[in-house]
């Protein structure tokens, strides 16, 4: 049996979320931006599981499974978009993508 204050687990979750947010803001490479979004999603799911463990209910874990599903769909579409952008623009720079103009 463990005896951990709830705040400590939530602090870890918010630290992970802030790291992911900072990564999204500071990187220019599209792959790193997608990875940082994954860190943020994982931190949100972590907070859900901690809350579920606190109230001893299964709902937190169910919500984590939904977040996992959403992350899988998001990553597949995001990586396909990254491949397409690299194919067309030959760069991974997120700033270059804003130069795309409609025909």
């Amino acid at each position: 049996m463990i005896n951990i204050p709830l705040e400590h687990a939530l602090v870890v979750a918010s630290l992970l979320f802030m790291i992911g947010l900072a990564g999204t803001l500071i990187r220019k490479n599209l792959i790193y931006i997608l990875l940082s979004v994954e860190i943020m999603l994982n931190a949100a799911g972590f907070a859900f599981v901690v809350a579920g463990a606190h109230w001893m209910q299964a709902d937190g874990q169910v919500m984590f499974i939904f977040i996992l599903t959403m992350a899988a769909a998001e990553v597949s579409v995001g990586l396909a978009l990254i491949l397409r952008i690299y194919h067309n623009l030959k760069t991974m720079n997120a700033d270059e993508v804003s130069n795309i103009k409609p025909d």
Binding site: I2, P5, L6, A22, H54, M56, Q57
Partner: peptide, 29 residues
């Protein structure tokens, strides 16, 4: 951006630690 993220992180730490809430017992679900 890192400084702004650190400020946001400190704010959320203050919010989390301001309320006294219970312990995690780790009983299995």
């Amino acid at each position: 951006p890192s400084i702004l993220a650190i400020i946001l992180g400190i704010l959320s730490l203050m919010i989390i630690t301001s309320a006294q809430s219970g312990f995690l017992s780790g009983s299995e679900i």
